[in-house]
Write a protein that binds this DNA or RNA. Structure first.
Lengths: 194, 194
DNA sequence: CGAAAATTTGACATGACTCAACTGGAGTGG
DNA sequence: CCACTCCAGTTGAGTCATGTCAAATTTTCG
């Protein structure tokens, strides 16, 4: 069950973990299953856990005054989930995170995660990489949202995230792109013509 | 000249740096002045430097096919500048970073920065915090862009970044918000009524 | 003062949203 | 195997927010 996580760590930092270190990591992460629609985090709660997806698909979204959902992030295997803002500042989260498919997670307390970072330099290396990637992805997406029309954004999305398209329905992807499902449907129709 | 930087580091990590460590930091960062409009980084170049703003104001933006500028970030005193994506992946940057006011920077090579992170645990702590904050800010902004109307985004902006308003002209702020200067002008007129 | 930069304004165009209706699976249970 | 429901996707008509462009006005600063 923990192999994916250990593999992931060793792939993103070197030299490999010692077996003592591996034991620490394994001890900190408990396997947990989430059913489709089940919440990992609910708006208003402080995010106390970090999850690593072994198998499945999840989404992070906010809900506005009108009840419309806005997808902030989508996650698949080997991704980390948590609301960093809430976890770092210990404030109630503005987001929900739930399972889109039945999902197997490895879950650790944020506090334990911090501990691992301090104790295992490699783990720190890895989380640094993680942070960097998240930031870069977020920056890119922001730039794309600010600069491009709905159509172009969709093209870029297809290009960059083919796996999301296979796993999430269109209305979720529309929300991720910041447009309505109706608009996305029309955009696709246009695109097919070409 | 380096005091601001050392202060910043000690404010964002503890215990304080030893004098040996301070010496390492000081050695890595060279003071440099940028005139208004001068580039720190140009689109197409690989970002090889990191800057810390001692005094002044800078902006990071992309330019689309039509020649329109899109402001990705604004920076003031005690902010770090660099294109993380380009620096991390050694690929040509999609962004420009230039001085909006005459600006005093402390500049280090990305490679030297990495070195400091490895040698000085505190420095690692600090950059971790930095990364986290950048990510959170970027996430927030993305969410706001996806969820809110132009008017609401401007309100939030006024609330969260009063200093930007004092230092950057409206058309820059409009671009940061992802709207045109014309629209921002109208939005403000509306807002004043209330 | 005068030139350049920033802002405002009006008329018009358009991309995206809204809402409701319709279509078409994919289950589920009788 | 059919009827039923749920969920996703499509489509059309009308509306609204924001963009475009050009001109007028105000502000900034050498």
């Amino acid at each position: 069950m923990h192999e994916n996580l250990l593999l992931y760590i060793n792939k993103n930092a070197s030299p490999p973990l010692t077996s003592d270190e591996e034991a620490l990591v394994v001890a900190a992460f408990l396997p947990k299953k989430y059913r489709k629609k089940q919440y990992f985090l609910q708006e208003g709660d402080v995010c106390k856990y970090v999850g690593f997806i072994v198998k499945g698909a999840m989404r992070q979204y906010s809900v506005d005054d009108k009840g419309t959902e806005h997808v902030v992030n989508l996650f698949l295997e080997n991704w980390w989930i948590s609301d960093r803002e809430s976890a770092a500042t210990l404030t109630p989260s503005k987001y929900n995170i739930d399972a889109w498919e039945d999902t197997e997670l490895l879950v650790a307390k944020v506090a334990d995660m911090v501990n691992l970072i301090e104790k295992i330099p490699l783990f720190g290396q890895m989380t640094r990489l993680m942070d960097q990637r998240s930031f870069i992805a977020s920056q890119r997406r922001l730039n794309s949202t600010l600069s491009n029309t709905a159509e172009k954004r969709y093209e870029e999305f297809v290009e960059n995230h083919p796996k999301f398209i296979q796993r999430f329905p269109q209305h979720i992807i529309a929300s991720y792109l910041g447009i309505t499902k109706d608009t996305l449907s029309r955009v696709r129709k246009q695109a097919i013509k070409k």
